[in-house]
């Protein structure tokens, strides 16, 4: 029972890591840039929602605040690319990486100044409620995280395989030049992808902050999600989720059964092993071009 309990809470954590990793991978696949502020996007999404719904701020209904904050973060991602990154088109990777790191700092400061530097919880209608199926005690928040992530995965799958814009995003990520030749407006697609990963970040943030407190430095969690993305195979959406789940599961298990301190290094130890034995990640999508 104890073990199952650990698994469930590990899964819930893993889903949050996985969703942040998903944001990394979306952007990386489509634009070949790595957004090191993805964790901070998540944190910002959580605070935007807190700002909408918590009673000391605007006090809106929770079910209205969530879609609102997802929209706000989507617009934020879109505008970030449209207003700033797009003008760095053609610059080296390094400058883009540094720009996103700087953006992370700005977001952290902004969130602290606007809302709070203290750990804050999102007020949800389901806070503290539990489900007790057959002797287990499951927090509704944790179950909800797993369910929402599963639904989101399905939505993404359908979006990328069925819709015109989703297919265009795939096309632009697989061969940017060819996408241009087909008349796909690649620059707009890039902005849309940034918007999409902003929305995913908002969902991750809401889920994270409904389960525990969040403060502006929580965004550094992004590093762990980055490891998750690398474990799964940078560039694979299912890989990102799987990597997140692996890290989420390993942490509580290592803390429970391993010597003290192991749980902190376990994710990175796994990353190291993966990089040594399967450098492309679990679902590596590297493939050579035929001539």
């Amino acid at each position: 029972m104890d073990f199952l309990q650990l698994i469930i809470s590990g899964l819930a954590n893993g889903c949050v890591y996985g969703l942040i990793a998903l944001g990394f991978v979306l952007i990386y696949k489509a634009t070949e840039a790595v957004n090191f502020a993805q964790g901070d996007f998540m944190m910002l999404g959580a605070f935007v929602c807190i700002g909408f719904t918590n009673h000391e701020y605007m006090g809106l209904n929770f079910w209205l605040a969530v879609p609102l904050s997802i929209l706000v973060m989507g617009a934020f991602g879109y505008l970030f690319n449209w207003g700033i990154l797009r003008h760095m088109f053609g610059q080296s990777q390094t400058s883009i990486v540094i720009l996103t790191i700087a953006m992370g700092f700005i977001i952290r400061f902004f969130a602290g100044a606007t809302w709070s530097h203290e750990p804050t919880s999102l007020e949800t209608p389901y806070a503290g409620q539990e489900l007790r199926p057959g002797g287990l005690v499951l927090g509704v928040d944790e179950v909800l995280i797993v369910v929402v992530t599963a639904i989101l995965t399905l939505v993404f799958y359908l979006f990328f395989s069925r819709t015109r814009i989703g297919l265009a995003m795939q096309a632009a990520s697989q061969n940017q030049l060819a996408a241009y030749y087909m008349g796909i407006p690649v620059k707009r697609i890039h902005s849309l992808v940034w918007g999409l990963s902003g929305m995913v970040a908002a969902v991750a943030g809401v889920l994270f902050a409904s389960k525990g407190a969040i403060d502006p430095s929580t965004g550094l969690l992004g590093i762990k999600a980055f490891a998750a993305a690398a474990i799964g195979g940078f560039g694979s959406l299912p890989g990102a989720l799987l990597g997140g789940l692996i890290i989420g599961l390993v942490e509580p298990l290592a803390a429970r059964y391993g010597p003290p301190g192991v749980s902190q290094i376990a994710p990175y130890a796994i990353l190291l092993l993966i990089l040594i034995f399967r450098p492309g990640g679990i679902f590596s999508q590297t493939q050579r071009k035929k001539v």
């Binding site: 297919l167 795939q170 096309a171 697989q174 030049l177 030749y181 008349g183 796909i184 690649v186 493939q287």
Partner: peptide
């Protein structure tokens, strides 16, 4: 480039440049 495609010019690039992970039908649809 997308505005030029809309005007009726299409570029079939050197070295194929297809979308490798998509199916043949999806490539054609693109």
């Amino acid at each position: 480039p997308d505005a030029i495609v809309r005007r009726g010019i299409v570029h079939v690039p050197e070295g194929r440049e297809i979308f490798p992970l998509m199916s043949v039908a999806e490539n054609i649809a693109m």
